[in-house]
Amino acid sequence: MAFSTSDASDAAVRADSPRGVAASFARRFVRNRTALFSLALLFWVTLACFAGPWWLGRDPAQSDWASLSLPPTLQGGHWFGTDELGRDLLVRTLTGGRVSLEVGLLGTLTACLIGVAYGACAGYFGGRIDAVMMRIVDLMYAIPYMLIAILMMTLFGRAFYLVVLTISAFSWLDMARVVRGQTLSLRTREFIDAAKAIGASGPAIVIRHIVPNLIGVVVVYATVMAPGIVLTESVLSFLGLGVQEPMTSWGVLIEDGAQKLEAMPWLLLCPAAMLCGTLYCVGFVGDGLRDALDPKER
Rank of each mutant, 00 (worst) to 15 (best):
Val230Met: 13
Glu84His: 09
Val218Ser: 02
Thr183Gln: 05
Ala142Ser: 12
Arg290Cys: 00
Ser237Thr: 05
Phe43Ala: 13
Phe37Val: 15
Arg58Met: 13
Cys276Val: 15
Arg177Ile: 03
Thr188Gln: 15
Met152Pro: 14
Phe43Tyr: 07
Pro18Asp: 00
Gly228Ile: 03
Val21Asp: 00
Asp16His: 13
Arg27Ala: 15
Ala23Cys: 08
Val45Arg: 05
Arg298Asn: 15
Gly77His: 04
Thr166Met: 02
Leu70Trp: 15
Ala169Pro: 09
Leu261Glu: 01
Asp193Ser: 15
Leu173Pro: 01
Arg208Glu: 09
Ala263Thr: 14
Leu56Gln: 07
Val164Ile: 13
Gly181Ala: 07
Glu102Asp: 10
Cys270Lys: 00
Ala117Ile: 11
Pro246Leu: 09
Arg19Met: 07
Glu262His: 13
Val163Gly: 01
Phe156Val: 09
Arg98Gly: 12
Asp174Pro: 12
Gly52Pro: 02
Glu233His: 10
Arg298Glu: 12
Ser69Ala: 15
Phe238Val: 14
Glu262Arg: 11
Val224Cys: 09
Gly96Asp: 05
Leu239Tyr: 02
Leu241Val: 02
Leu165Phe: 04
Met175His: 03
Arg31Leu: 07
Leu173Glu: 01
Leu184Ile: 06
Ser38Phe: 10
Val285Leu: 01
Trp79Asn: 12
Val13Ser: 11
Leu173Gly: 04
Thr46Cys: 13
Val178Arg: 06
Val132Glu: 08
Pro227Gln: 04
Met247Asn: 15
Thr223Ser: 10
Arg135His: 03
Ser38Met: 10
Ala204Glu: 12
Arg135Asp: 05
Val206Ser: 02
Thr95Gln: 06
Leu268Lys: 11
Ile229Lys: 07
Phe238Ala: 14
Thr154Leu: 10
Gly277Arg: 11
Glu102Val: 13
Tyr124Ile: 03
Leu173Cys: 10
Gly257His: 08
Leu275Pro: 03
Gly97His: 01
Arg158Pro: 00
Asn32Lys: 11
Ile136Leu: 15
Phe284Gln: 12
Gly126Thr: 04
Thr34Leu: 07
Val243Ile: 07
Asp59Val: 02
Ala8Asn: 14
Leu109Cys: 00
Ala48Ser: 15
Lys296Met: 10
Ala61Cys: 05
Leu268Glu: 01
Arg92Cys: 08
Thr232Gly: 07
Arg33Trp: 00
Ala66Ile: 14
Leu85Glu: 14
Gly202Leu: 06
Glu190Gly: 00
Gly104Trp: 03
Ser4Val: 06
Val164Met: 04
Asp287Glu: 11
Leu113Val: 12
Leu147Asp: 04
His209Gln: 11
Ser249Val: 04
Gly277Ser: 04
Val163Lys: 05
Val243Phe: 02
Leu162Asp: 08
Gln259Arg: 15
Gly251Gln: 08
Thr5Tyr: 07
Leu275Trp: 01
Leu90Asn: 05
Val13Ala: 10
Val252Tyr: 11
Leu90Trp: 05
Gly119Pro: 02
Asp88Gln: 11
Ala111Ser: 08
Ala200Gly: 00
Ile192Val: 07
Ala22Val: 14
Ala258Arg: 14
Pro212Arg: 08
Gly286Thr: 06
Leu36Val: 07
Leu279Arg: 07
Arg135Ile: 11
Gly20Leu: 12
Met225Arg: 13
Ser69Leu: 12
Leu186Ile: 03
Gln182Ala: 12
Leu241Pro: 14
Met274Tyr: 15
Trp266Ala: 00
Ala12Gln: 10
Pro271Trp: 00
Leu275Ser: 04
Pro295Gly: 04
Met134Pro: 04
